[in-house]
Design a binder for these strands. Sequence first.
DNA 1: TAGCAACTTGAATCTACCG
DNA 2: CCGGTAGATTCAAGTTGCT
Lengths: 274, 274
Amino acid sequence: MSKPIYELMCGDCLSELRSEFGAGEVDLIVTSPPYADNRKSTYPGIKPEEYVEWFLHRADQFYRVLNKRGTFILNIKERVQHGERGTYVMELVQRLRNRGWFFTEEWIWHKTNSFPGKWPNRFRDAWEHIYQFNKSKDFSMFQDSVKVPIGDWAKTRMKKLSATDRVRDESKVESGFGKRVANWEGRKMVYPDNVLYFATVCENTGHSAAFPEELPAFFIKLFTRKGDTVLDPFMGSGTTVAAALKLERRAVGIDTERKYITSTRNRLKTEGLI
Amino acid sequence: MSKPIYELMCGDCLSELRSEFGAGEVDLIVTSPPYADNRKSTYPGIKPEEYVEWFLHRADQFYRVLNKRGTFILNIKERVQHGERGTYVMELVQRLRNRGWFFTEEWIWHKTNSFPGKWPNRFRDAWEHIYQFNKSKDFSMFQDSVKVPIGDWAKTRMKKLSATDRVRDESKVESGFGKRVANWEGRKMVYPDNVLYFATVCENTGHSAAFPEELPAFFIKLFTRKGDTVLDPFMGSGTTVAAALKLERRAVGIDTERKYITSTRNRLKTEGLI
DNA sequence: TAGCAACTTGAATCTACCG
DNA sequence: CCGGTAGATTCAAGTTGCT
């Protein structure tokens, strides 16, 4: 009997992966973990000084369950503390590398609608890190699946549209996006670069972390094929899971909070994915 | 007698600063140092494993000559070695912080026309780090001097134009950019964010890693006033010096290579700056 | 149906103020 | 002095609703 198309697991990914997954079962991990701060009101924050160790233990499990040719995509950003930008992410990346991860690339996610505000000593923060780790130099990559219309001065807009439309187009949900697709069909298509443009999600998802579906969709298309398994060990509102199902990949989402399991299941039903 | 408006010094910035500059004489340092690699054909490369120590000794001098309210802007990017992105820059940032530098912010420079190319396991590299260090939380910042037109579909283009035009507009050199300035005059101006868009310089500057004049110009306007002193300890083709002079700041450029001293002086003459 | 305007909101950060 | 909270500031994208 074949594996289920999706699984939503409630618990700490450290123990869930250890007990429920064998080695090499996952083809792609895409996640945006809780950041190191103390915003306990929305999500159990981990203090910066404890963050690296906390994360490394879980990353060891990611490594174990990841396929030899698989990819681990980590979206994260340092917060400002006492006027300084934190450096724990830099420490984390080096530690991951020392533990055996192959540090292939750092992508930049430019958030075109970053949070507004004005301060005497800094401008608005409009970007986040996206680190790409592998198990070796030889990993699966399907570059043709993420081509974008050739750049002009509307490049950013088109890039976003292309990601959105392709997801919807390939999904089971018909949303009347055919016309927009036509806008860039027939245009010359080129490979993107390592700077991605996506707006954050403003609508109320029931989760504080607005993670646009285009973002996981981009990496799912780039690093997996239909039927492959995609894991988000810090699922949150379930955006990665939804994107994976729309693209006909198997999806596994893990979260410590029961409410996110419930809301994600509702979301998948609403979108007609399950 | 007042200080000269500009100085071009041939030598290692370590010794030049130590012997020729007193504490706190510089208001802004903007530099793009030689990267850690072995491209000895154009610039004396420093091996990755020696790079951090090599840089830290020079950074100590930067700290000494920098004004209490001054800023140090460091543009740098890791190279790919054996398929992996290097981590020595992350180590450098942490070490600088441990030496007393206040790590205020990391900006992203998106190179809109990055070098084309295709590799089986990565896309084009289209961005570089720009680290902002200070001596404390209290530093000079003149945010109104770098406002940009409010965003619309042409946001990125306008942002780039604004930076270019303002530099030219305030310079001694009239270049017929008045019409472009008019394009965004009367529009609502907003503060930029920490992602900058500048096209790379393709013209032959005689230097391997020329950054666009808009880049130092942006930070010179943001962190200094007319008459302040701007230093580039790894001058190269002299872009920072040229931008500083156009904006009526004092400029100091240091380089180990005699040929760059010569070519920069010629450049400044050609541009009518000296 | 297209186009425009008003309205809403989002992993922000700083200063001020309290206990 | 440290830690926590409330208020002010500000921009882009999406949504709604009207002509």
